[in-house]
Design a protein around this nucleic acid. Structure first.
Lengths: 350, 350
DNA sequence: TGACCTCGTGGGAACGTTACCACGCATTCT
DNA sequence: AGAATGCGTGGTAACGTTCCCACGAGGTCA
C-alpha cells in the first residue's frame, strides 16, 4: 500500500500512462478525453476507464502551453475586504467555476501602483482575460494590457468603447424615490459625494429626471456634498441639521457609509431616527442590518455584476465584443430607518 | 504604429526572440534571466537590454511545465464575503505577491461539496500547495489531496500532525478578561457557541484557566449557550436577562455577531448598553463600529494569519515541515459597549 | 474491379522553458 | 610542455499536451 501510494505522490500520471494502460496511442487518449467525435464508443470507454484507474488529471499547465489558453481569468478589485466587492468576486468565481476556469482575484487596495503590479502578475500568469475596476481614471495601463478585458464599476462608464458592467443607478434611484413617496416623503435632501466624482453626477441626474417625470420641481431638491465615508456622511448630516427647517427631515444618502454616518449625527444632536429624520442608504452593505434602527437601503447587485462580467469577458475572449455597457438592476432592502408619513400626517407639508 | 502593435498582440515574444536580438543562445538568455552566476556581466546586461527592448515577459505556464512548479498557491476559505476571511485572503495575497507567486482564492460558502470541487480545481491548476480552512471536520479529502498544505482556523487544531495557523484564543481571552477587570467587571456571563464546537471548549478552558490564575472561583462563572449567529446571540441574551439577577450585567460573547445580537436583545427589553449591561465581543468585524453603542471587542489578526499561513506553506513546499500550530496574537478594540464600574461603584458587588 | 471517400487510429512536431552535457578557451599545476 | 581545472557558452533533450498529417481498413460509386 505504501508502494502504491508513493509513485502517486511522486509523479502524477500523464496521458501516456493512460494510453499504455488502455492499449492505445496518446492521440486517441487525447481525443477520448476531449469528448471528440470520430472515435469508437468502445475505445472511448476503455480510455476513460483507464484514466480513472490510474487517477489521471489533466495538466492545465501543459494544455495552456500548447493551446495558448491558460484556462484562467483575472479579477482586480479595489478592496477585497469590502463586502460589496467580495460579493462581486464570489459571483465571478462561481460563474467561472461553471465554465471550468480558475479565477485569480487581486485587491489593489485603492493603490494605482499595486493595481499595475497586479495587472503585470496577471499577464505573467498568462490569464486569458481580466475584469478590472480601475482605481485611477487613467486607462493607460489597461491600453497596454494587451489582453481581452472588461471593466466594472461606475468609473468604467466614461470609456464608451470598452465593455463594462455596472449597477443601474437610474433604476436604483427610481426605486428609492418611489419608495420614499410611498412613505410620504416627496423631496428628500440628497447627501451626495464630492463634486469631482462621476457617480455624483449620475446620481443627481437620475434624481432630477425622476423628479421631472413626477412633476416635482427639481429646484426644491436640496443637495449636500460630502466625502464617501462615514465621517463624510456625519459631517454632511450635521450641516443639514444646522439649516433652519421645520418638520420631518428625509435624507437620501449616496452610499450606506454616509447613511450610517448621518445616523450618528442625528443621535449626536439628540434627535431620533426615524421619528425625527428618515434616512435612505444606497449600497446594501451588511452592516446596515446592525445599525439602530436598521438601515433601509438600495442594494447593488454585486454578485450579478460579477457573474455578468465573466460572461462579457467570455464574449470578449471569443471575439464577439459587444463593446457596450451592461446595467444590472438594484433592489430595495426595507428595514427601519424610514418614517411612514403617509398614514399619520402629523407634520404639516411645506 | 499599427504595424508595430499588431505583432505584439499576436505573438508574445519568447526567450528565443531575446536570444536573437542579443546575439546569444537561448541557454544564455535563460541563465541571464535567472540571475545565475557564471555569466559575463557584459553578456547579462546585453541580454537584459534585449529582453526589455522586445518586451519579453516570462511565460509562467512553460516554466511551470518544465520545472514542475506552477508558481501558484491555493486558498480555500469558507466565506469570502465575511470581512475576517477577506482579511485573511488579503494577507495571504500580499505575502504571496512578495514572493512573486499567484494566489487562487476560493470560497466554499460552507458547502463541503463546493470545497471538494475547489480542491480539485486547485489540483488541476497545478498549484504548488494550498491553504485550507476545512468546512467539514473530516480530513478525508485533504488526505488524498496529495499536495503540500497548511490548515487555518480553529477547526484545524485537532489535527496535531499537520501545520496550521490560527488565532491565539488563550491570549485573546486573557486580554479581554484583563480589560474587563480593569473596568470593574470580575465575573462576566459567557455567551458561547453550541456544545458541539471545538472553539467553545477552547474559549471556556481559557477563561477557566485565567480565572484560577486570578483567584476567581470558576464555579461562579455563568455560561449561556447559543448559535454563532446574530439570532443565536439575541436568544442567548434574552435568556440571560430572564434570570433573576441584581445589578449591572456583563457579557463576554464568543463572537461579534452574537454580541450584536445581544445588544439588540438588551434594547428589546428596554434596557441600555452600556448603562445597564456591558457587552464584550470577539472577532473584530467592521460592523461593530457602526452599532450603537460601538462594540468593544477583541480583533482576530486575520491579515497576519494569512501572511503566516503562506510562510508556513512555503516551508512545507520546500520540505522543511514544522508540523505544528502557530498562534497569532489578537488585539483589543476599545469602543463604547463597556461601562466603567471601577470609578463610580454605584452598584453593590455581590 | 479500381478509384475514391470516410472513419478510426497512430506518429510525429510544436508550444516555451529549464536541465544537462559538451565544447572551446584561458589559466594553473606537475 | 602536457595535463588538469575553471569559466562562459551553445546544443539538445525533456516536460505533457494538442494539432496536423498519414495510414490502413472498409465502404461506395462508376
Amino acid at each position: 500500500m505504501t508502494a502504491e501510494d508513493l509513485p502517486l505522490r511522486k509523479r502524477r500520471p500523464t496521458i501516456i500512462d493512460v494510453a499504455e494502460r488502455a492499449g492505445v496511442s496518446k492521440s486517441t487518449v487525447a481525443r477520448a478525453l476531449a469528448g471528440a467525435e470520430s472515435i469508437l464508443d468502445e475505445t472511448r470507454e476503455r480510455v476513460l476507464a483507464a484514466a480513472k484507474a490510474v487517477g489521471y488529471e489533466r495538466n492545465h499547465l501543459a494544455v495552456g502551453m500548447r493551446s495558448g489558453r491558460s484556462g484562467m481569468l483575472g479579477l482586480v478589485i479595489p478592496d477585497i475586504a469590502n463586502p460589496f466587492w467580495a460579493d462581486v468576486a464570489r459571483g465571478a468565481q462561481d460563474r467561472a467555476a461553471e465554465a471550468d476556469v480558475s479565477l485569480l482575484v487581486f485587491s489593489s487596495d485603492w493603490d494605482p501602483a499595486k493595481e499595475e503590479s497586479h495587472l503585470r502578475a496577471l499577464r505573467r500568469a498568462r490569464v486569458d482575460g481580466a475584469i478590472v475596476n480601475p482605481v485611477s481614471d487613467a486607462l493607460d495601463d489597461l491600453d497596454k494590457f494587451g489582453l481581452p478585458f472588461v471593466l466594472i464599476g461606475s468609473s468604467a462608464e466614461r470609456f464608451a468603447d470598452v465593455s463594462s458592467v455596472g449597477s443601474d443607478i437610474a433604476q436604483a434611484v427610481q426605486l428609492g424615490l418611489d419608495h420614499l413617496v410611498s412613505k410620504g416623503h416627496h423631496a428628500p435632501t440628497l447627501n451626495v459625494g464630492p463634486k469631482s466624482r462621476l457617480a455624483r453626477t449620475r446620481f443627481l441626474n437620475s434624481v432630477q429626471r425622476h423628479s421631472i417625470e413626477r412633476d416635482v420641481d427639481p429646484g426644491q431638491l436640496v443637495v449636500e456634498d460630502g466625502e464617501y465615508t462615514l465621517e463624510g456622511g456625519r459631517l454632511a448630516m450635521l450641516r443639514v441639521l444646522d439649516r433652519p427647517r421645520l418638520g420631518h427631515i428625509c435624507v437620501f444618502a449616496a452610499n450606506d457609509m454616509m447613511a450610517i454616518g448621518a445616523m450618528m449625527a442625528v443621535r449626536e444632536r439628540g434627535l431620533r431616527c426615524p421619528e425625527d429624520v428618515s434616512i435612505l442608504g444606497f449600497d446594501g452593505i451588511p452592516s446596515g442590518a446592525f445599525t439602530f434602527p436598521g438601515l433601509t437601503t438600495i442594494a447593488k447587485p454585486g454578485r450579478d455584476i460579477g457573474v455578468r462580467a465573466v460572461e462579457s469577458l467570455f464574449d470578449e475572449i471569443e471575439g464577439r465584443p459587444e463593446h457596450g455597457r451592461v446595467y444590472m438592476p438594484c433592489r430595495l432592502i426595507d428595514r427601519a430607518s424610514l418614517a411612514d408619513l403617509s398614514r399619520e400626517p402629523r407634520k404639516l407639508a411645506g
